[in-house]
Design a protein around this nucleic acid. Structure first.
Lengths: 121, 121
DNA sequence: AGAGTATATTGACGGACGTCGATATACCTG
DNA sequence: CAGGTATATCGACGTCCGTCAATATACTCT
């Protein structure tokens, strides 16, 4: 698209506020994307996901607890957020709860995020 | 790495909390990454970046203001956050301020994020 | 049943975040 | 200089977020 023409005019300081720049996404689309980034915008959640990704299969909560610098209720809190956003799932075995990453959801998130970031190139 | 062996044991419910799972990143590394995601974790910031990416060069604040559903002080607020994180820069021309994306910083952020998400594959 | 363990939930607290009206600052024009 | 415009900053307000101690729930073993 020839977005250059109005910009050259603008350089002269003669016009402003009239390029009619509109985002390519609606605000609610942007909200959904922001929610994707939000899931990843906390160090504890990143570390939990990291452990789950690198330990294919099952990791129990006490292992996760040992991997991050917060107390058990806080770990449960972040695990709940990740579960509610569909990125991980849990399975109760005896008195333990094993968590694992949901590869399909993780890949879908990765693809959505990469589609956004591709425009940054 | 053979992460499977302890996991098979674990399946029987006989052991727990001993795989010594440690995140591949320190907490402060995770904090820096989380800050990257935080920059993108707001719909208004995503929309602002979108407009700046798609209008190579200069966009003045009033144009940005027209593109998002918040008032002028809030636009300035988000522009400041993006500027402080190095993703955009501004140039004053007459009574206007033109913003543009910093391609180098944007690409660097994209690469950091993609490196994280690659593990999700 | 009773004691111990693993995990989730609740409730409270402090602090950070998003928003906006009001105001300040800087510039331009007449 | 006076009046107008563009943008930034300030100050206040409400809401959301992260954390944890305490408690609840569910399971295991004896």
């Amino acid at each position: 698209m020839p977005t250059d023409l109005p910009l050259l005019d603008r350089r002269l300081g003669e016009r402003c506020c009239d390029i009619g720049a509109r985002p390519s996404r609606t605000h609610s689309e942007a909200e959904e994307l922001a929610a994707d980034f939000d899931d990843l915008a906390h160090p504890v959640r990143l570390q939990l996901l990291d452990v789950l990704v690198r330990n294919e299969g099952r990791v129990c909560v006490c292992d996760l607890e040992a991997a991050v610098p917060v107390k058990q209720p806080t770990v449960s809190h972040h695990l709940r957020l990740l579960r509610e956003s569909g990125l991980i799932e849990s399975e109760k075995v005896g008195q333990w709860v094993y968590y694992r990453i949901r590869r399909d959801a993780a890949r879908a998130l990765r693809d959505r995020v990469q589609r956004v970031l591709a425009a940054f190139a």
